[in-house]
Design a protein around this nucleic acid. Sequence first.
RNA 1: GGCGGUGUAGCUCAGGGGUUAGAGCGAGCGGCUCAUAACCGCUAGGUCAAGGGUUCAAAUCCCUUCGCCGCCA
Length: 637
Amino acid sequence: MSTFYLTTPIYYVNDLPHIGHIYTSTVADALARYRRMRGDRVRFLTGTDEHGQKILRAAEEQGTTPRALADRVVGRYHELKAELGFSYDDFIRTSEARHRLGVEAIIERIQANGDLYVDRHGGWYCTSCETFYTEKELLPGNRCPDHGREVEWTEEENVFFRLSKYQQPLLDLLDENPEWVRPATRRNEVRAFIESGLRDLSVSRAGLPWGIPFPGHEGQTVYVWLDALTNYLSALGFGSDDDSLYQELWAAADGPKVHLIGKDILRHHCVFWPAFLLSAGLPLPSTVWVHGWWMRDDRKVSKSVGNVVRPDELIREFGPDPFRYFLLREMHFGQDASYSDEAFVDRFNADLANDLGNTYSRLATLSRKAFEGRTPPTPCDSNPLIEASNHAVSRYHEAMEELSFDRALMALWALLSETNQYLVSREPWKLIRKGERADESVSRILWNGLEALRIVTTALLPFMPEVAARLLRAIAVDPDGATVADLSWGGLPTDADLPKPEPLFPRIDKEAWLAAAVAEDGDDDQEKTDMISIEQFFETQLRVATVEAAEPIPKSSKLLQLRVTLAEGETRAVVAGIAKAYSPEELVGRQVVIVANLQPAKLMGVESQGMVLAASVDGRPVLLRPDEVVPQGTEVR
RNA sequence: GGCGGUGUAGCUCAGGGGUUAGAGCGAGCGGCUCAUAACCGCUAGGUCAAGGGUUCAAAUCCCUUCGCCGCCA
């Protein structure tokens, strides 16, 4: 028995949870459950990152406090835990006192090592990503390359960390520990980045009231990443009076310490974090596992293509476990994958309904018929399924070790397939029909089948904890406290009560489901599916206008009232649903594109004489503007 | 632009110098009838992106081209 410390990133509270968060947590949860079955002393941590300029702003815009904003999002994460059956042991919030202690403690050590100094610097700062950019990196018009939002020239005195000092140690770390960043392609990226040269890192911000005050530097707040990354230690009590967990699971851990992350935060975890730890003289994690992203097909949404995506709907309708199964089966860990309702339905029907569900159903029915509602009375210790099972289990373990969840599941499904082949080759139903109900051979055949199913289902506990447990109970096996030892042949109880099988995974009518999905997706998809002629397009008059004034609309969190100039002397009032992404001040003076011949409409009591165009990024508006300043009223076509 | 990756059956992908290139899904045909129209078997004839090279032998190594993806604070 060894320790196993597993973390997800802490999720930033500017966003409600989406499939990216769900995936990371699902992977971590499956891994944690698997390691618990192996008998490891597992500690599974997740949490939220709550500090920073962006949260402060969002809170101000919504007329609330950062803390209240965070509370709301955290509430949603707690709901998600229940909805998806996550089994984390701890949930840390960076706004907690225990976290602050940890951050102060690590800074103290870095400071003592002489790796902090104060310097004055200026740069283009994006409040969205809380990052400084060089002129070269900016998009035209001084816009953030990530968010497309205008950056601000910021000049201030900050605390700097001597990251440059750790260039060689970090390269050595990567070279001596090929498993430190996985998969290897991410390791290469990190290595290339470090090799190209490390600059010292600003680790504080001046005058930011929402964050941890930088110890020893009045007026400075700890920079979000030094703050956030330290959660992995502070959650273990590092820096507090009781750091026993930290000692057990980190400092003196006799097992792996694994960070699970998405590829977007590779640099922070594989460069900054180990550098901080090296500087602080603290042990490093053993592996940073990097996963890919779920992509949504950019093909048009339509019934025939069937790429509508409704994860919430899928979970509500079919329960969390099929969705967990889908996420883990469909993605090759480390690579990107695309998801759609259609892919989900296909997996559900083929793997869960046809293979797993039906195999259970036929075995249970046969056994009930032959043995009066009970499991077979005679076990069997010599048959082709034993070898198949042992082989499947060993492939399963190998794959789990590599976080290759898809391969682990394929190994189990191979055993299911062999079980079905075995049944067909023995045709126990014929023997039963011939009246050989109590025949020992019937008992052996069915016991073997059920035993293989028991092993598959036990191995599925980390993937589908709720359904797998239900299935095990249905075949007279107690799922509680199951361990990997239960994956060896011979555990199925004989002559035990075997209830009538209920469909665990009722087949989904794919056509109907996708049709409903399309219908529900509604109006905005209608335009996407239908082609229009160029004449139809030209019916829409698009023109460039300049924002003269902007102000919020009372009692509306989304709407702003704009006054735009279309031509000399021609101004219009336009209402735009962009208040969550843009403040009135930043809009004045910019050029926007508006639909000029839209029927006026009243929104929240204010008449809107046009519509401002914006790209909609997951619902967040990003305003369109000409590449350069053009004359008022210029037509867009 | 530099570095890295990738391009294999309709779809998702394995394979990685050596007999007839594989799996799952989907499709077609047959079988079975215990089972959730499930299950089992057979069939898919794919220039292994294109061109060139190395080799007795290349999808597998090398070069070039094209496409796609990632990283380059």
